[in-house]
Write a protein that binds this DNA or RNA. Sequence first.
DNA 1: CAAATTGCATAACACACGTTATGGACAATG
DNA 2: CATTGTCCATAACGTGTGTTATGCAATTTG
Lengths: 244, 244
Amino acid sequence: MEAGESPVIRRFSRIFTLTDDERRWLEAVAGPHRTSSPRRDIIQQGRPIPFVAVVQDGWLFRYKRREDGRRQILSFVLPGDLVGLHRRVVPVGGHALQSITPTRLATMSDTQISALAAEQPRLADAMFRLSALELAMMHEHALRLGRMSARERVAHLLLELWTRLRCTGECTSTRFFFPLTQEMLADALGLSVMHIHRMLRDLQNEELISFEDRRLTLRDTEALAELAEFDPTYLGLRRNFALE
Amino acid sequence: MEAGESPVIRRFSRIFTLTDDERRWLEAVAGPHRTSSPRRDIIQQGRPIPFVAVVQDGWLFRYKRREDGRRQILSFVLPGDLVGLHRRVVPVGGHALQSITPTRLATMSDTQISALAAEQPRLADAMFRLSALELAMMHEHALRLGRMSARERVAHLLLELWTRLRCTGECTSTRFFFPLTQEMLADALGLSVMHIHRMLRDLQNEELISFEDRRLTLRDTEALAELAEFDPTYLGLRRNFALE
DNA sequence: CAAATTGCATAACACACGTTATGGACAATG
DNA sequence: CATTGTCCATAACGTGTGTTATGCAATTTG
């Protein structure tokens, strides 16, 4: 895995070894780039999905909002992830997509997408696999929300984010840039801001994690993984990937 | 929508009008049928996905189990639903599939699946749409688990099941066969059995629902929908489908 | 046909987590 | 450069939901 490659290529490289042709195709597919400042709704709930794109840079999240204002964050979207993939079959999205940091998306035209299956069947498979992975992450998210304690939920989510970042080379140690607010964590994990705060304080006091600046350090990944029963196989990685 | 048709055909008919050719293809695609008695694991967590199939009859659910024995039910699988769709790209499943009632599955061969895109592009699209729907239901499930009260969760799930059953013609009134135990509801909704019991008792006392035999009656669907902010558009149906 | 298990029910008690209130550091804004 | 808002922090208190115990009818099992 070379430095300087786009996150998509690093992402696909995890699935299989890319041929030069496929590599070129992936580099060429990126249509016009769309940039966005932080805290902008890029796709709105109940509105048409405007494009298919690959995240080149930045963090985002998908969320649903209830009439009374309560918000549920469904998933975090990191560099190398795809958005809007279901545009062709479900033109109107049931959830919104919001940027957390400044972001850069590489859009893909509808014609490129529909030509994919015929021209690059292995890449089409890889995309299918990525969308299967998205479902698998939602399954794990349901497990977190339904059957984990607050403490476990926090630890589990932090480990998932760390693992996904390492998977595309966005992170190479146990410290990484962490732009999520406590409110976002609360809305992702089905908890109150107060309680997220308590859990983060506890984990810090126990020296399992620490914050400096806007950076998070996982000080004892094994203890965290045991605490949360974290097993990254659902991310399409082998069991001990997190402990390398 | 005619009686006696297989649930798959009724399901696909909701998406678009099937040609005679497509109808024949769908009827022919059903390979060997697999039947199962209640409470059997048909697919096991961490084991290869043995086949792709359409549910012809019966209720099932997908679930994950934690090391300490706690269980999270991810989704309920009803007649007309597809299972094992990701087999080709993710051979090992991250969750199990269990039958609730006696079930009948119509399996589809791998060659049929891979020929689908070329031979029946509209059916392939419909399947893609069904898998997008599965993701949308997981999103709604996350919303239930993370940001609804126990009372709302119960009402919302009952309405979802009712709507899905009506969608394939399994149910035509507000009363339907309901094989879920309180334990299953608890494990689906992230609650304790005791609390599910409390909520069901309350809803019964308020005459919003009632049970006779193993049949559930929704006595006031509008009140339930308002209570739970239920809006079936995420099921690919128009907003007021539930109130027809 | 016993025996064991499952599903449902009621009650008392416990606690994990939510709510509300308040303040301070910092960043964004006019 | 005030001003406003955001994010984080600490504290006291309230409650929705979990836990444990127990019984009984219906079902499954040997």
